[in-house]
Design a binder for these strands. Structure first.
Lengths: 213, 213
DNA sequence: CCCACAATCCCATATATATGTGATATTCAC
DNA sequence: GTGAATATCACATATATATGGGATTGTGGG
């Protein structure tokens, strides 16, 4: 059972280290190591990698775009990002592009092999510092309140949700099969409970605080 | 340089393993190991832990509430969660409660010491399976579009943002120091570009797609 | 049993909003 | 320097919305 590893890393000394490190490891076979991913499509088709190591800061095409190119061709081959920077937006961009893991270069020597095994098993290994960034940015959004925090009734939420879809009062009425006046009444109560006095404020408060999705 | 570790774990055999494991490790000192965290406040004040290991499934008070109790008292002592389940909502609840790391029990033997060191350094270690959950749930929200995707102009965004604050057209006009009619014009254009025809739909689309915050 | 609350409907009206048409000045690219 | 895009303002009007009042019915708790 051999794992074919494809490497994109422009720093030659690090690239050589990676190759050396994995060559020593039983079960790993390096099918290619390159300093840029301009010829990525070809490599994918001919080298049959099981996992790809991708540096973030690559010349010509950066690692993020590299992942995008990979994901445009296949979604099954896991990609492990390598970087020196723990920068929030790069992390997010890489994850959205379809990267599976995120390893800081200073941990390569101790955690590369484990991390490769982790992504092969469907996990998303990341260095603690990276994980910290992600967690912080999640927390920043704040814990979601529920509709209960404002004592909204089930029906009032129905109306709010329908309204947030962009429905007019009349459409909400049709949607929920109630009269226009009933819609008005519910909305009136919602406004009182949320302490707002316009549709715009109600919808934006509801969405921002996670009362509705 | 001794690290004081406080442990809450109801499974006695695991708790003993944890104690044994850390006792062997130089630099760690276990100041307490308990099967529940009912007496948490006392422990915090008298045992002076530098790091706390907390099981998720605890009798009486569960681990999530345990973290909340800790965070009500201090925000500086890192808490590392231990769990057998990789369940999305528990993970989120724990993170929001203020946990710093999240370790699956099956990795305790190999990664506990490293993980403790990671949280002490301000990182957020987590098992790859846990990280995967978090990443998936982030990705689910989809990559944020920018206002550019709809060719909104700077001024149109200004108006949209002001509207989403709950401002009426008149208030937007005051806010941006332009006339009411100009506000109308901008909004008209926004509606055309977003393909919506009401304020509610515009605001909810803008918020949901991340055009505005 | 009574009360509070939820859900439903009705009426009335002052504002606000959506939409059309039209105009002027500025800027920026070609 | 001509044209396209932007930002600004104006006028008109049909709907929609916000808000006040009042009413009926069912339900669940005390």
């Amino acid at each position: 059972m051999n794992v074919n590893v494809l490497i994109y890393e422009d720093n030659e000394s690090l690239r050589n280290s990676l190759v050396a490190l994995l060559s020593r490891e039983k079960g790993f076979h390096i099918v290619g190591d390159y300093s840029d991913c301009t010829d990525l499509e070809n490599h994918l088709f001919h080298l049959h990698p099981n996992v790809i190591l991708m540096d973030i800061d690559l010349p010509e095409i950066n690692g993020i775009d590299g992942v995008k190119k990979i994901r445009a061709i296949t979604t099954t081959i896991p990609v492990l990002m390598l970087t020196v920077f723990d920068d929030t937006s790069s992390v997010y961009d890489a994850l959205y592009a379809g990267a599976n893991g995120y390893l800081l270069k200073k941990y390569v020597s101790t955690r590369l092999v484990t991390s490769i095994n982790d992504v092969l098993e469907g996990g998303s290994p990341m260095s603690p510092a990276i994980a910290r960034l992600i967690i912080d940015s999640i927390k920043q959004k704040g814990p979601k309140k529920t509709a209960l925090d404002y004592n909204l009734t089930a029906r009032e939420i129905d109306v709010l949700v329908s309204l947030a879809k962009g429905n007019s009062y009349k459409m909400v009425a049709d949607d929920l099969t109630i009269s226009l006046d009933t819609v008005r009444t519910h909305i009136k109560h919602v406004y009182e409970k949320l302490h707002v006095q316009s549709q715009g404020e109600a919808i934006s408060k509801a969405l921002r605080e996670g009362l509705i999705k």
